[in-house]
Write a protein that binds this DNA or RNA. Sequence first.
DNA 1: CTCTCTATGTAAGCACTGGTTACTTTACGC
DNA 2: GCGTAAAGTAACCAGTGCTTACATAGAGAG
Lengths: 202, 202
Amino acid sequence: MWCGKNDRGEYHHGDLRQALIDYALSRVRADGAEAFSMREAARAAGVSSGAAYRHFSEKDGLLVAVAQGGFQILAKKAAQASAGTSGAERLRALGNAYITFASDDPNLFRLMFSQMCMGAAKAAGPQELTVPSALSQLRDALAEVTGTDSAEVDESLLAVAWSTAHGAASLICDGVWTKDDTRAQAALDEVCRMALSKPIKK
Amino acid sequence: MWCGKNDRGEYHHGDLRQALIDYALSRVRADGAEAFSMREAARAAGVSSGAAYRHFSEKDGLLVAVAQGGFQILAKKAAQASAGTSGAERLRALGNAYITFASDDPNLFRLMFSQMCMGAAKAAGPQELTVPSALSQLRDALAEVTGTDSAEVDESLLAVAWSTAHGAASLICDGVWTKDDTRAQAALDEVCRMALSKPIKK
DNA sequence: CTCTCTATGTAAGCACTGGTTACTTTACGC
DNA sequence: GCGTAAAGTAACCAGTGCTTACATAGAGAG
C-alpha cells in the first residue's frame, strides 16, 4: 500500500479494501450475503460506490474475501476446541466446533460453502485447499483414534465423519434442526463409536 | 379457478399461477433461484409484471411453491429407487437417491433447503412436515434393517443416516466433492454397516 | 523541486430489479 | 342485465450491480 494513510476527510481512505471486507463480514453475519449492497459497503466506508469496484471487480469478489476469512475463523475455533484433548474426545470436540460454528454463524457458514465461493476457491488452486486446516485437523484426530498415520487414514471413515458433521451443520444452519437439537450430538456420538471400532493398524 | 380459460391473446391467462411456477422451476434448475426475476417470469407467461404479484405477493412466495414441488420430486425418486429392494440394499438405494437428486439438480436442492424455504415451511406447520416423505421412507428402511417398529427406530441411527446423506449431498451440490466422488458412496457404506451392526430388537 | 505516472477516488449514468398503486377488463351469480 | 370481485395493465419508486469519463494525490525519477 503505497498510497496515503489518512482517514479524516482526506481524499484517500487509507485501507479501503480491508474496511470493505470488515463491513461486509459484519453484514453477512448479521443478515446474510444477499442483504447488503456494494453501494452500502462503500457508503459505510465513507466513499463513493465506484471506489469499491477499484478493489473488488465485482460483489462476488468481496464475498469470496469474506468467506476466506470465515475459513480462518473456523480453523482457529476447531484448534481451540480440540486443544488439550485426545482420542474420541478430540474427535467430538472437532465435530462440535464445526457444528457450533455453523449454528452460531449460519449466514457466514452458508456463504463459505456456497457454490460461488467453492467455485472461486477451486479456480484458484487444488481442491482441498479450500477447507484445508479444519479438514486436516479431522484427519489427524482420526489417525490418532485408529492408531495409524495421518496419510493413511481410512478414507471411508474420513468421509462419514466429514459428511456427518457437515450434514448436521447444514441442517441446523438452514433451520431444519434446531440449534441444540440432540440429534446433532447423537450423530457425532455414532461416528465416534464407529471410529473406535475400526481395527487399529500399526 | 372461476376465471376464463382462454390463452390466445385473451385478457385473462387461464392458469397464470401454474405457468409462473413451471417457468420458475425450469429457471431455478437451470441457473438457480437468484438468476431469474419476477418480471422475467411474467414476461415468459406473456403478462405484465404486476399480474404475477396478484398470485405471489413476493418473489419468495413463488420460490417456496417451487421448493414444495421439489420435495415431491425427491420423495417420488426415493420411492422409485427403493422399490423392490429390502434390507441394507434399500438403505443404500434411499441414500443414493438423495445424493443423486442433489447432484443432478443442485440449484433446486439448494433452494429446497434454503433458510427461507425451511422457515416458510416451519411457519406453515409442524416441523418435520417439510421433508416428510423422504424422511419417513428412511425411517422405515432403518426399522426394517434393525428389525424394529418404525415408531421405535433408534433416533441416533436416524440422525447419522440423515446427516450423512445430507452432508454428502450438500458437499457435492456445492462443488466441494465432485459428482461421482467415491467418498459419497464410502460414507453411505459406513452408515449401512453401522445400521446392520445395531442389535436387532424384537 | 518540479513533473510525470499510476493507484485511488468521484459523479453520473445504464439497464435492471422487487414491489406498489391507480385504473381497466372480464366472468360469474343473482 | 348488472354489480362485484378476481385478474390483468401501465406507470412509478427506490434501490441495485456495474461502467465510463474525469479529478486528485503520492512516490520516484530527473
